[in-house]
Structure formats: C-alpha cells, structure tokens
Nucleic acid binder design. Structure first.
Length: 221
DNA sequence: GACCAGGCACATC
DNA sequence: GATGTGCATGGT
C-alpha cells in the first residue's frame, strides 16, 4: 500500500518530535557505540563511552594501541565484553591499517563501497554497518533493527519471516532517499519499541495505533 | 528470578 | 538456505 510508511513516519514525528540521533559527539564515537550497543541497552553503552573518553582513549590509534586486557575491563559493563573487544579491535584495525588512522578518509567512501568495506569486518553485520553509514557518514542507508521488524510485522506491512534485506528494501523503495528522514524514522521506531511495542505490546498508547489492522495484533515477535 | 536489551558469527542440518 | 546457539552484564 503506497504511502503507508510515510504516513507512519508523519504520525510518529507529529507525536514525538525530533529524536536527536545519534547521541554521540563524533563520527568515531558513533562507530564505537554501534559495536557496543549490539543486543544491549544504550544506557550501559553511554556510560562506557564516557569512561573511554575520560581515559583519553576515544581515538582510533590510541584505542588500538591499548592493551587488550585493559579494553576488556572497560567494556565489561556492556556485556559480551570479550567478543565486543575483538569486534571493536577488528574495526580499529581497518581504520588504522587501511586508512592511516583517519575515520574521515574511511567515511569519505561512496555509500555502497563504505557499506561493503564495513561488512567485511568480522563483527560488523548489516545493522551495525547501516548505522555507521547513516549516523557517522550521514549517507542514505536505512537501518533495520528488531523493533523495525516487530512493528512492521504487527502492522502487516511485512511478513514475520522477512529477512533484513526484505525490510530494508521495502523501506528504501517506499520512502524518498533522504538522510534526515532515514535518521529520524529509525530513531522514532526505536522509541516506539522501547515504550509500546514490547513482546507484550501496549498499542493503545502508541501513535501508530490508528494504523493497526482491524483484525487485531498478530503473534508477537 | 525470569526476562529483556538499538546483533553477529559459527555450527549443523 | 534456514534454523539453533554462544556470547555476558545491568536494569525492570
């Protein structure tokens, strides 16, 4: 149904306003946050990023030079701290060894090349890559996450079985290729996920409630 | 004390 | 290609 997504966006934006994403000060901070937030609440990640900042480590070369054991201790509060230390260091290796330590040079790549370059890093999957392309490089790549999946499926816009790229392609074909729009929409969907679209949904308080199908809510995701 | 959180890689069928 | 499992801490 054409216009459904634009309609959904308008409802959310009218009700909730701009979300001011990504909550990070620099492109590098966004990249670090994108790894650390995998399957984790942002609250823990924000504290950890502050610790890195206070330690003067929020810089690709210095962070890459830091002892692994020290990095693991710093990352402990975000969970999966050993695997995330590896993933973060994989990304740091790309920046330091292939781009001379320059995040700017990496993020200068055209959208598709940047996305593929990031995906080649072990530990960077589709959502993390899209988050970096959109929120660090400010280039148009729609970010899909579990909330997007859940919300869209409950409204009948996609199948529950839809994969990442089915959902991403659906969004990018329905919406104008616009960075601020992609930015706000993903952030608004996360807001809806946090507040109303849990496993046990509270749809009556959700701004998208008018768009729910009459037949009621399908199986929770 | 479950259950969840802004995923991903890897094993196995 | 689809499905299952380990990774780990902190908040509700």
């Amino acid at each position: 149904m054409p216009g459904t997504l634009q309609n959904a966006y308008d409802l959310l934006y009218s009700a909730l306003g701009p979300q001011a994403w990504w909550p990070g000060d620099s492109p590098f901070e966004v990249m670090v946050g994108a790894i650390l937030v995998q399957n984790t609440s942002w609250r823990n990640v924000a504290r950890t990023i502050d610790l890195l900042k206070e330690a003067g480590l929020l810089d690709p070369s210095r962070l890459y030079a830091a002892p692994v054991a020290e990095l693991e201790e710093l990352l402990r509060p975000v969970g999966y701290f050993r695997i995330k230390t590896k993933r973060l260091r994989n990304m740091l290796r790309l920046i330091v060894e292939d781009f001379g330590g320059s995040v700017e040079r990496l993020l200068e790549l055209d959208t598709e090349t940047l996305r593929e370059t990031l995906l080649a890093v072990s530990g960077v999957g589709p959502e993390t890559a899209d988050s970096i392309v959109l929120y660090a490089a400010h280039k148009p790549s729609f970010v899909v996450d579990t909330y997007t999946h859940r919300i869209f499926a409950r409204h009948g816009w996609i199948d529950y079985g839809a994969g990442y790229y089915e959902i991403k392609d659906y969004c990018e074909s329905e919406l104008p290729r616009d960075v601020p729009l992609y930015n706000e929409f993903h952030a608004l969907l996360v807001h809806v996920g946090h507040h109303w679209c849990k496993r046990v949904p509270r749809c009556t308080e959700c701004p998208l409630q008018p768009l729910l199908p009459e037949t009621g809510i399908a199986e929770p995701l």
